[in-house]
Design a protein around this nucleic acid. Structure first.
Lengths: 180, 180
DNA sequence: TATTGTTATACTCTATAACTATA
DNA sequence: TATAGTTATAGAGTATAACAATA
C-alpha cells in the first residue's frame, strides 16, 4: 500500500463541513443544500417506516386521498394527486392486494371504478399515521413549540417562493399547470 | 361525460391543503412533509440549473470536491463523498469529456489516477456556483437576514436529529457508517 | 370521437460483481 | 492477497404509447 496522499485534507478539520475550496460559499450550510439533504433523508426514513405496513410513500398518499375522497372515481383521485393514470393502476392494484382499498363499479359509468377504504384500510392508515407522527417527533426534537411554528412558517414561505401547492408532493406528480 | 362526482371536494376550499380527512393531522403542514416536498423541488430545480453548464448535481458535488482536494486520487475523492467506485468512473468520464477535469498518472502508484481541475473547469465551476446562488436567492426571497439565519440554525438542528453529516448529500452516498 | 382503465414496451438508472493491472 | 480503476450485467423503476370497452 502506498503512503497517504499528501494532498488529502485533514479529516478532523474538514469532516463536518464537507470538501470546500477557499473562497467558495459554504454550500453545506445553504438553505438549498440543507433542504435537498433533509428532504432526501426524510423521504428515505419515511419510506422505511411505511414499509412496516406494506406501503410505499405513494401508497400512503393515495390512501389518504381515498379516505378524504371516499367513493370518488379512480381518475378523479389520480387527477387530484396528478399521478399518471398508468401509475395509478399499479398503486390501486397494490392497495387492493393488501385489502385496504376496494374498486367498485361506478353506478352510472361502466368504464369507471370508484375507490373505497375498507375497515382494515382504516386500521392500516391509522397505523401509518402513527408511524409518520413518530418521524415528525424525531425531526422536531429539541425545538420548542414556538420554534417549530416559526420553522413551519418559514418553510411555507419557501414553498410559496417555489410555487408549490400545499399538501401536494411533486415526487409522483406529472408536470404541468397547477390545479385552478 | 358523466356528471361531476358528488363526493368531489370543493376545490376552492381544499386545494391549498390537499386531500385530507376529518380528524387527521394536517400532513401538508408537518415539518416532515414540507422538508420532503421542498427537498424534492429544490433538487429538481438545481438539476435544471446545472444542466445549463452540462452538469448534473452529482457532477457539481464531485467538481467541488476536486477543487477542494486538487490532485487527490480518484478513490480518495470517492471515499470522501461515499460515492461507489463504479459510479465515480462514469462521473469522472463525463467531467473529462467536458474538459473540466483531467486524470493524471499517480507519481508512485501506477494503479491510481490523480484528479485535477482544468482552467476551464474553474470557469465552469464559477458559473455553476453563480447558478446555485441564484436558486438560493429564490428560496430565501422574503426572509430577513435574521430569519434566514434562524432557518439555517433550525434546519441544522433537524439534520443533527437525523444524524446527517454536514455538507454530505446522502443521494449518491453509499450506506454505512459515517466517516470518523 | 373522446375518455377510463389497463397492458405492453422501451428507457433510464444504478448497484453488484467480475476483471485487469498493479501493489 | 489486497487494492485502484474499469467494465459488464442484471434488476428496479417509470414513463409512453397502444389497446379495449364504453361514453
Amino acid at each position: 500500500m502506498s503512503p497517504p496522499d499528501p494532498t488529502d485534507l485533514d479529516p478532523e478539520t474538514e469532516a463536518r463541513a464537507g470538501p470546500r475550496a477557499q473562497g467558495r460559499p459554504p454550500f453545506g450550510q445553504a438553505v438549498g443544500f440543507l433542504l435537498s439533504q433533509l428532504g432526501f433523508e426524510t423521504s428515505r426514513r419515511f419510506g422505511d417506516l411505511m414499509s412496516e405496513v406494506g406501503l410505499e410513500p405513494r401508497h400512503f398518499a393515495v390512501l389518504r386521498a381515498i379516505e378524504a375522497m371516499e367513493g370518488s372515481a379512480q381518475n378523479t383521485v389520480s387527477d387530484r394527486l396528478r399521478v399518471p393514470a398508468s401509475s395509478m393502476v399499479a398503486i390501486i392494484d397494490h392497495l387492493e392486494q393488501l385489502r385496504v382499498v376496494e374498486r367498485r363499479l361506478h353506478p352510472t359509468d361502466r368504464r369507471s371504478r370508484t375507490l373505497h377504504l375498507t375497515p382494515h384500510g382504516k386500521e392500516v392508515l391509522d397505523r401509518a399515521v402513527d408511524l409518520a407522527m413518530g418521524l415528525e417527533s424525531t425531526l422536531n426534537a429539541g425545538l420548542s413549540v414556538d420554534q417549530r411554528r416559526e420553522l413551519i412558517e418559514m418553510l411555507s414561505r419557501v414553498a410559496d417562493n417555489l410555487g408549490l401547492t400545499a399538501g401536494l408532493h411533486p415526487a409522483n406528480a406529472r408536470d404541468g399547470e397547477a390545479p385552478p
